[in-house]
């Protein structure tokens, strides 16, 4: 595998002219994945930010074949495209889905599970901006604990989202999928490498890429990459792969102490108390304890 880098990636663009917000992490995830996969990628996107910004007739923003799926049917529509292209005798194509956190972990999880069960040959990418951003920041099951959204507002009685983030990566891995990974638009070369790797494995692949939304998170557009990286560096969004039945951490935790800066810098978390942040830290630490005990870690032969 030739490791894709910022230097060797194609200058061709496949997703442009769209109306995504400034600093959109999701549009970066789509744009970069398509550059890695190339012109024979067929993109399937359900209702959500990327279809809302990219498919407004007559301003259609994909240079490769692309279509909007039903909200709940991303993975099943991908299956149909894959089967149809195979039946018509095509070769060397990639079916790639780009669904948001709600489209993946809520309404689309049934179709995703079915596609993993069938082990259809395609790549499903969840671009996770941690809420239903297209409709104005409502809570999804991937919204983190404490976040204020328009459906988990901060009130006198309840202060933001009371549930945690559904662990899609391990849910997907539990199906016994050939390849799954977490990624982050802030670590773009790691993401590109995982997309490339997925494209070279037969069967179903899942990549869950954290894609901050400045509009919904309450950060400045130019801070998007910085906050994306902080999410991984502070240990809240570990980068990892599930490959050949094993979990493998892609990089260790950076500096656990920056979690407070990560939280305090975002408008959606502004109401959280020190005690709330302490709770987030303890959940993170429990997760890392589990990771350290069972996942392969870089620089260590055994867990």
């Amino acid at each position: 595998m030739i490791r894709p880098t910022a230097r060797n990636i194609t200058e061709d663009e496949y997703f442009f002219g769209h109306k995504a917000c400034a600093g959109c992490g999701g549009s970066l995830a789509v744009r970069i994945a398509l550059k890695v996969l190339g012109e024979r990628a067929v993109a399937v996107l359900p209702a959500g930010c990327m279809s809302a910004v990219g498919f407004n007739f007559p301003q259609l923003c994909f240079a490769n074949n692309a279509m909007i799926s039903t909200f709940a049917g991303t993975a099943s529509m991908m299956t149909g495209v894959e089967a149809g292209l195979r039946a018509r005798g095509e070769r060397d194509y990639q079916i790639v889905g780009f669904a948001g956190d709600g489209g993946t972990a809520d309404i689309g999880i049934q179709a995703l599970s079915g596609a993993i069960d069938r082990n259809d040959d395609m790549i499903y990418i969840c671009y996770d901006n941690e809420a239903y951003m297209n409709t104005g920041t409502q809570k999804s099951s991937l919204t983190p604990f404490g976040a204020s959204t328009t459906t988990t507002p901060v009130g006198g009685k309840i202060r933001g989202n009371v549930s945690g983030k559904k662990n899609m990566f391990e849910i997907v891995a539990a199906h016994g999928i050939p390849y799954a990974a977490t990624a982050n638009v802030g670590y773009i070369e790691d993401y590109m490498m995982k997309v490339r790797k997925a494209s070279e494995i037969r069967g179903m692949k899942y990549i869950h890429v954290l894609a901050p939304c400045p509009t919904g998170w309450g950060i400045r557009p130019e801070e998007m990459i910085e906050y994306a990286r902080m999410a991984t560096d502070c240990g809240l969004w570990p980068l990892a792969e599930y490959d050949g039945g094993e979990f493998r951490l892609s990089r260790g935790m950076g500096d656990p102490s920056i979690l407070r800066n990560y939280i305090k810098g975002q408008k959606r978390f502004r109401h959280l108390s020190d005690q709330d942040i302490g709770h987030i830290e303890s959940m993170r630490d429990a997760r890392w304890e589990k990771i350290g005990g069972s996942w392969k870690v870089p620089g260590r032969d055994r867990p």
């Binding site: 279509m67 709940a72 049917g73 149909g80 089967a83 149809g84 049934q110 179709a111």
Partner: peptide, 21 residues
């Protein structure tokens, strides 16, 4: 294709039909 619901049955059929088969 053994789909997991009728919603997926029709979504899958649409995906396949979009390839012209």
């Amino acid at each position: 294709i053994y789909v997991e619901s009728e919603h997926s049955a029709m979504s899958c059929a649409m995906g396949a039909s979009s390839t012209g088969v």
